[in-house]
Amino acid sequence: MENILTINNLTKNFGRITAVKDLSFTIQKGNVYGILGPNGSGKSTTLGIVLNVVNKTSGDFTWFDGNTSTHDALKKVGAIIERPNFYPYMTAAQNLKLVCKIKGVTTDKIDDKLEVVGLLDRKDSKFSTFSLGMKQRLAIASALLNDPEILILDEPTNGLDPQGIHQIREIIRKIAAQGTTILLASHLLDEVEKVCTHVVIIRKGVKLYSGPVDQMNASYGYFELKSHHMNQLKDWLASQPSFGILKEEGDKITAFLNEELEASEVNKKAFEAGIVLTHLVKRKESLEEQFLQLTNNQN
């Protein structure tokens, strides 16, 4: 698989504050990557560094084959990292013509890009008449004018209503289906789960997880258990290699699995150890539970 962007041990300090700490991950061609983390976790700083608008403190990053200068590489990148900024008294088409001039590309793809974002019928409308969602879609069209190999979006649905959010996500899926690699920063787990193939989770600038979205939810799940002899049950669970973390919540013990194990097997083993279970339920962690566990376990 061809690498688009490789980040190695990237660190950024703002005075005494470390915004990004020893961050490493690789973006491969043809995937949709999400940088996911709470607000203030270093997502925007990371994007700013690779786009040459924020200076790194240490570490490095390389675009494409590693032999392309950042200046040349950015000609093959489309990015929106701030609120859309167009001339309000100019039409959508006029604004995009200006962007073409700045980027040094021809204007013959303006209609195509407006169609991709669902704004072709509003090409002659002034920017000042656009809703927030339409402004964001026009910004995506402008970022596509140079037919980028990768599209970078920072919180693309921030501030939008549910319809606007849905439209942006559909556009992202459409662009990805045409073969463009996408990297988006988001604090919304739902967004990453719905549109991304891969995710990098960061908190306070530190990477907690990097890999396919579906593998993040590849845990073995957990059991909720109860018995009339809870201390005996807890000691027995702690002695079983199949179980990892144990939590006591109310009158139940939650036992996280280290390997695949069926409820019937647990019941049989407990009975053989002299423990009668009065409650036994197997559950699978949702992506949200895994995300919260990852981010809450960090100090």
Rank of each mutant, 00 (worst) to 15 (best):
Y209P: 02
K12Y: 02
G66N: 07
V199C: 09
M1N: 09
D121A: 14
V200I: 14
V20Q: 02
T45S: 11
T197D: 15
L119D: 12
G250N: 14
S128K: 12
E260N: 13
T106H: 11
P38K: 11
P162M: 10
L132H: 10
N217Q: 12
F86Q: 02
L138K: 04
D22I: 06
Q293G: 14
D60W: 00
S286A: 07
Q28P: 00
I7H: 00
T11G: 03
L184H: 04
T6M: 03
K204D: 08
C100Y: 08
Q240V: 14
E288T: 12
E224I: 15
G221H: 06
G244E: 09
H71E: 14
T181V: 05
K269C: 11
A139R: 09
G274T: 11
T11S: 13
P162R: 01
N267V: 15
D214A: 08
D214V: 11
R203D: 10
A185V: 07
V266N: 04
E260K: 12
I80L: 15
L144D: 07
N31S: 11
K268A: 03
E260I: 11
S69D: 11
W236P: 13
K21T: 11
L132W: 03
E149W: 02
D124I: 09
V206Q: 13
D154M: 01
K12P: 02
V116G: 06
R283W: 03
Y87M: 04
I245Q: 14
E155T: 08
A238H: 09
T91F: 05
K126T: 10
K247C: 08
K135C: 11
H279L: 14
D147R: 13
A177G: 05
L277A: 08
E249I: 15
K103L: 13
S210K: 00
D72R: 07
T68D: 01
F127M: 10
V32G: 09
M134K: 04
P84I: 06
M230Q: 15
E191W: 01
K207H: 07
L184F: 06
E248D: 04
N55F: 03
N231Y: 09
F61L: 01
K252W: 00
K226L: 07
L280E: 11
E262F: 11
L188A: 08
Q28Y: 07
I168N: 01
V192E: 00
S227W: 00
S219V: 02
S219G: 15
M1P: 08
N146Q: 13
T26G: 01
D251A: 15
E262D: 15
V199N: 06
